[in-house]
Design a protein around this nucleic acid. Structure first.
Lengths: 140, 140
DNA sequence: ATTATATTAAGAATAGTTACTATTATCGAT
DNA sequence: ATCGATAATAGTAACTATTCTTAATATAAT
């Protein structure tokens, strides 16, 4: 839950964690843990899936990557730390960034309406990507 | 994926499914499958958890309930079909509605920027509920 | 270099959910 | 009311994504 009133534990560097970070930064595809695992083991054949997950959580807690969770269960990760939104295709599952959209959401309004202290919000769009749109049009 | 070009299968009524719908409509707490299970078995002691899940999916596909998926994996369900947003407490997990907020999001803008055909969007807020806020203030 | 501690690989464990199977309930047509 | 077709059920097993455990190894501080 990391509310900043606990002492930060010093992380030792590890080749595995560095590799994982490189893998994430080298793609724009918002990869899943499994995708990262497959990619990482090309460079380091006996890295383990547990190591992937543990370090993804560490990197997320350190603030070096973003974890994206969409409706359908699997986590995806993003090396782009800037706050931005995503669209996911309901057919093929592809996830892409929504560029340059201004956050139109007033957290302050929500705080006034609910009494909650708002820390963040998530906005995600679901629809059909251009390829799937075309493909489905051809079928009908 | 239900894109409306397949034949709808006719559903038969069942006491279990009716009960599940009643349970969901009788609360505003955005219950989880497990909560619904515990509540339902008071009326129908040997209803099974599989029945709960199967019917939640059926009711969702029929459009009679909404499935809410927040970051942390467990699904919650909502009998209120009107499009509305939610806030979730990062401490206790409570989920409440954000009342009367107007959807400020322009799907059309996103379509223009990404080429996707947008079907829906999800907006959810995360923060601390009034109770947890107070409790945490007392600790410090 | 030695010591203390963090990190690892491997695999078992867990949580939430879905699938399978034999039986029972529902529904439309007689 | 009865029949035949098929959906729904309870109970259980299987599955998937993730976390935990453990013994061995790597790293940083002395």
């Amino acid at each position: 839950m990391n509310l900043n009133h606990q002492v930060e534990k010093k992380l030792k560097t590890s080749r595995q964690r560095n590799l994982i970070l490189c893998v994430i930064r080298s793609t724009h595809c918002h990869p899943t843990a499994d995708w990262i695992f497959e990619r990482a083991r090309k460079d380091m054949p006996n890295i383990s899936l547990g190591t992937i997950y543990r370090n993804l959580n560490l990197l997320r807690d350190e603030g070096k990557i973003q974890e994206l969770r969409f409706g359908n269960s699997v986590s995806r990760y993003d090396g782009d730390l800037r706050s931005h939104y995503h669209v996911r295709c309901m057919e093929c599952g592809e996830v892409v960034d929504v560029p340059h959209i201004v956050p139109l959401v007033s957290s302050q309004q929500v705080e006034e309406l609910t009494g909650y202290r708002i820390h963040k919000h998530r906005l995600e769009f679901t629809g059909l990507c251009p390829d799937c749109l075309k493909r489905l049009d051809n079928i009908e």
